[in-house]
């Protein structure tokens, strides 16, 4: 049997997030015999729908129903989880903006070890497991040995484990709402107000077939011109990584990534982009990815179909010239 494993289920509009079934795969790697419990918090009919749905994949579903959870606030749910989760259990949480809000503090409250942003796991042996993580924005990876005998909170990188869609079981739904609330003062010290929707920009990169995407490797705002010239020659739109938006060189609506737009082009040119997972997380639909980077070890080359090791400031204008030349000849 071993330690109990819990998976925190993200959901929206009554539908569980893709990460839900990915966490089953991760849990099975840790211990194929463990019973896996889905923890689903929310309120009303939408919550019930998610719980029913999760019941066909998880052995047990813990439902936590409370009006205060209609919009999930990590400060409210954390004390509830700390109260109901058994000592020494293993808790899997997706590593995204909500997980980053919840997980580190939860590990303290449970006195469990915290393993952040893991994307590879080994089986548990003698109360220890081996995890794979990245450091330095993905430039190097490391194996971490972790003593989980006193419990663990593990945040799991979305998309890094294949969803387990084969389980068809008749899981139990257990209502934990009352127990979760008992003598817990919900985190009233932080009050959710509203969502401010992202600004709409002049181009909608989510609709583009071809994207010429630029990263910090462009070095200077004035150099952006060569990127726009290439995009024009190719008939593409220009998108970018986060530092370009942080520097206010391009508008937020052009940012690709987990905190920006999710794009589904046919061709994606990554120019001077290192390939951090938060950037790659915004590229869907398996496009043909071309990476140009002067560092041959840049992680983008692991995601790309074709790589060119070169300085974009030299390479991009040459490529543009050749495309323009070719077009002239063929007309």
């Amino acid at each position: 049997m071993g330690q109990q494993i819990f998976a925190y289920i993200l959901h929206k509009d009554g539908v569980a997030d893709d990460t839900a079934l990915e966490l089953i795969t991760a849990a099975n790697i840790l211990n194929p015999d463990a019973s896996i419990t889905a923890v689903v918090a929310g309120s009303g009919a939408e919550l019930d729908a998610v719980c029913r749905n999760m019941g066909s994949s998880f052995d047990t579903v813990w439902k936590i129903d409370n009006e205060a959870l209609a919009y999930i606030n990590a400060e409210v749910i954390r004390p509830m989880l700390a109260r109901i989760l058994p000592k020494e259990s293993i808790v899997l949480i997706p590593h995204e903006h909500f997980g980053m809000d919840l997980a580190p503090g939860l590990s303290i409250k449970l006195d469990a070890v915290y393993l952040p942003d893991t994307f590879g796991l080994s089986g548990i042996e003698d109360g220890k497991l081996k995890a794979v993580r990245e450091e330095y924005l993905g430039q190097v990876s490391t194996h971490v040995l972790c003593d989980i005998s006193k419990g663990a909170v593990i945040s799991v990188r979305p998309g890094s484990f294949k969803a387990d869609e084969n389980r068809k079981i008749d899981g139990r739904i257990v209502d934990k709402s009352e127990e979760a609330l008992e003598s817990v003062l919900p985190g009233e010290a932080r009050r959710y107000l509203e969502i401010v929707a992202a600004e709409v920009g002049d181009v909608d990169i989510t609709k583009s077939d071809v994207l010429v995407s630029v990263g910090r490797g462009i070095e200077d705002q004035d150099n952006l011109e060569i990127i726009f010239d290439l995009a024009k020659a190719m008939g593409a739109d220009v998108s970018c990584s986060r530092p370009i938006v942080d520097a206010k060189w391009l508008e937020k609506s052009r940012q690709v990534g987990t905190s920006g737009q999710t794009v589904k082009p046919k061709v994606y040119m990554a120019l001077g982009i290192s390939g951090a997972f938060q950037h790659l997380g915004g590229i869907k639909g398996a496009p043909f990815i071309v990476a140009v980077n002067k560092n041959p070890k840049a992680p983008i080359f692991q995601a790309a179909d074709v790589g060119i090791v070169d300085d974009i400031l030299d390479f991009v204008p040459e490529l543009t010239d050749r495309i323009n030349e070719m077009k002239r000849v063929s007309y």
């Binding site: 081996k130 190097v140 490391t142 971490v144 972790c146 692991q302 790589g307 070169d310 490529l319």
Partner: peptide, 27 residues
């Protein structure tokens, strides 16, 4: 309770073909 065992750089993905040759050939 955690300990780094090693550092490594993963192999480039199977699909990543690095184009080589002169600048002209690559283009």
């Amino acid at each position: 309770r955690t300990k780094r065992l090693d550092y490594f750089v993963p192999e480039p993905g199977e699909g990543a073909e690095i184009l080589e040759g002169s600048a002209e050939e690559i283009i």
